[in-house]
């Protein structure tokens, strides 16, 4: 008990200084790292020729956007377990016209994104009544219904084996690489604007107290629906692009398992950090595929081990840990300044 008492002032101090020091100058180095990373990624295809690595990176870009879109929904306090389904809606809304009506991909991909957005907003409407765990469970079954409808869809959706023969966008994988990289950057930029502006403030306000939010004119329902529609757009878009890339849409890629893994990416990276999902996808997807590829069937052990390590040592995910470290360092520097001032005066 005493130990706890002793620790608490220090903890308070560190959070307090962390909050005060949240200036633009501090965010600067982080942004330049991200910019440099994007440039490296843009130049990478010149260096690596192995199409397998390129495939993994394409997959990574797609999932970075999707995992980020899940997190954007979550900042409004909604633990949405249907993100995979919205990805699936985007994929099938693109695949069905592509396969059966032979519409060109440049039409079907936007169609997929728009379909996911509209359905997302429409379905979010009744779900805005539900909060916390009830919302999570509601969306879990929403996802399950969508998958079942796809599976029960007969020849149109290809049932459980999936719908093959989706027309490819390009012949060369490199073009897919640049397309998905570009879409990821645009998505991340949009989500950054969304979160770090008054819209994000509204979302966070609703998630902290819908009652207080309403009393200052921030409607709960409207903002929650907006968050879901916005998130579903990117999930649907990436789902559609990915299904054109793969040439097939199959229900198993959009079920509960897929959704839970998307959530795992976010939790590993850090649910309270904008770059968390990107880092999480990097850790859970790139590291196993690049470095432990020889394990093949044993690969899931590596991911499970990563999950356990994160759960045990980093409650706020990897980016959360980095932030904490940063705040510690700055708090120490600040304390030194204060000491200097004191001795000087």
């Amino acid at each position: 008990m005493n130990e706890v008492m002793n620790i608490s002032p220090a903890v308070e101090e560190s959070t307090a200084t962390g909050e005060t020091s949240r200036t633009k100058a501090r965010r600067w180095p982080g942004m330049s790292v991200v910019g440099a990373l994007f440039i490296v990624l843009a130049l990478l295809p010149l260096g690596i020729s192995g199409s397998y690595y390129m495939h993994v990176l394409i997959l990574t870009f797609v999932y970075v956007a999707i995992a980020s879109s899940w997190r954007v929904v979550s900042i409004s306090g909604q633990f949405n377990i249907a993100i995979g389904a919205f990805m699936g809606i985007g994929a099938y809304a693109a695949a069905i016209p592509s396969v059966w009506l032979h519409w060109p991909p440049w039409v079907t991909i936007p169609l997929g994104a728009v379909a996911a957005t509209i359905l997302g907003a429409a379905l979010a409407f009744p779900f805005a009544r539900l909060r916390t765990i009830y919302y999570a469970m509601g969306t879990l079954f929403l996802g399950y219904v969508v998958i079942n409808l796809i599976t029960a869809g007969g020849k149109t959706t290809g049932m459980s084996t999936g719908l093959g023969g989706v027309q490819p966008l390009f012949g060369d994988r490199r073009y897919y690489y640049y397309l998905t990289l570009g879409l990821m950057i645009v998505s991340m930029f949009s989500m950054y604007r969304f979160e770090f502006s008054r819209i994000g403030v509204r979302m966070k306000a609703v998630s902290q107290s819908h009652q207080v939010a309403a009393s200052v004119g921030i409607g709960e329902r409207r903002n929650r629906i907006l968050a879901v529609a916005f998130g579903s757009f990117f999930a649907g878009l990436m789902g559609a692009v990915y299904c054109h890339y793969q040439g097939v849409a199959s229900p198993s890629s959009y079920g509960l398992g897929a959704t839970l893994w998307i959530i795992m990416y976010v939790l590993v990276g850090g649910i309270n950090s904008f770059w968390g999902p990107a880092v999480g996808v990097g850790i859970l997807m790139v590291i196993p595929e690049f470095f432990f590829r020889d394990l093949k069937g044993d690969l899931p052990y590596v991911t499970a081990a990563i999950l356990l390590i994160i759960a045990f040592t980093m409650p706020e995910g990897i980016v959360g840990l980095l932030k904490l470290a940063r705040d510690r360092v700055f708090a120490r520097l600040r304390r030194k300044e204060v000491d200097l001032d004191a001795s000087g005066g």
Partner: peptide
């Protein structure tokens, strides 16, 4: 117990456990 009933951490642990078991039987 080490997760202190933190929802996010417990589902991570559950999924890790589930992955390990299913993979083992699969292998």
């Amino acid at each position: 117990r080490p997760m202190k009933a933190d929802f996010n951490r417990t589902i991570m642990v559950c999924i890790a456990l589930s992955t390990i078991l299913v993979t083992t039987f699969n292998r």
